[in-house]
């Protein structure tokens, strides 16, 4: 019963996540950018734009220039999250890919980085008056959600260990559309439940900034209007 419920939620939230994000990106891609609005100094070639994007996505270059505290916490959180997510691939692959094996130990520490980053961001949101002013309840709720996911996940590793082999068997089963038994461990159920919520809201919330960053015209445009006429097809032109 429980196994079936969680299976249903898994399929549903995963489809919403995938379709939602794909749909969003399709909308962004379809929406025309009628004019050149590159934020200069900007690269004058496509390759240059690729590097600019890479520096933004990997190092958060602009954020670094802007505010060292937000950068430290934000970057720590995101890199921690990335490693933790990659580490989780071992629950979905059999045999486990070799590089996923490699990052297992790092992934463990990364969970601490993730939590520290989250708490840092959250405390700024609460303590810095400017940021408190611009926060809505959902901004706090999302931090709470991520915090809940992280802490419940870490609890299963460091406090009350669950039968992780059984969990893996369950998820490998789901990938083959077979519903096996999920261990009814309360922390595990909380952890998974929160993850499903996150997947549900991802495409309809600000969490969408992930894919959104690649579509920002001020950053993804090549600065070459004099070299190459910019004439997108739009209703106005």
């Amino acid at each position: 019963m429980l196994s079936a419920l969680y299976a249903g939620l898994f399929y549903l939230s995963a489809s919403i996540l995938v379709f939602g994000v794909v749909l969003r990106m399709a909308i962004y891609a379809r929406t025309p950018a009628p004019l050149k609005i590159a934020q200069t100094p900007a690269p004058t070639t496509r390759i240059g734009v690729f590097w600019r994007m890479l520096r933004e996505v990997v190092f958060f270059q602009s954020l670094f220039k802007s505010n060292k505290w937000i950068w430290v916490f934000g970057w720590t959180f995101h890199m921690g999250l990335l490693l933790v997510l990659l580490r989780h691939l071992r629950y979905f692959t059999n045999p486990v890919w070799f590089w996923v094996e490699w990052i297992q130990p790092v992934g463990l520490y990364a969970s601490f980085a993730l939590v520290i980053g989250l708490l840092g961001l959250w405390s700024r949101r609460l303590l810095v008056e400017r940021i408190r002013y611009i926060s809505s309840p959902s901004d706090h709720l999302m931090l709470a959600l991520l915090f809940g996911i992280a802490v419940s996940g870490m609890a299963m590793k460091f406090v009350a260990r669950v039968d992780i082999v059984a969990v893996k068997v369950y998820f490998l089963g789901l990938l083959r559309f077979k519903i096996l038994d999920l261990p009814p461990d309360p922390i595990l159920l909380v952890h998974l439940g929160l993850v499903f919520v996150l997947m549900f809201i991802f495409p309809i919330s600000k969490l969408l900034h992930g894919p959104g960053v690649f579509f920002s015209p001020s950053r993804n445009q090549v600065d070459n209007p004099r070299e190459q006429r910019y004439a997108p097809r739009t209703p106005a032109n």
Binding site: T31, A33, I70, R130, L208, H209, V213, S216, P217
Partner: peptide
């Protein structure tokens, strides 16, 4: 596109 992406993507980071 700028209008839509900018309205959607802000994470209220405060930077």
């Amino acid at each position: 596109r700028a209008f839509r992406v900018y309205l959607d993507a802000c994470v209220k980071c405060g930077a």
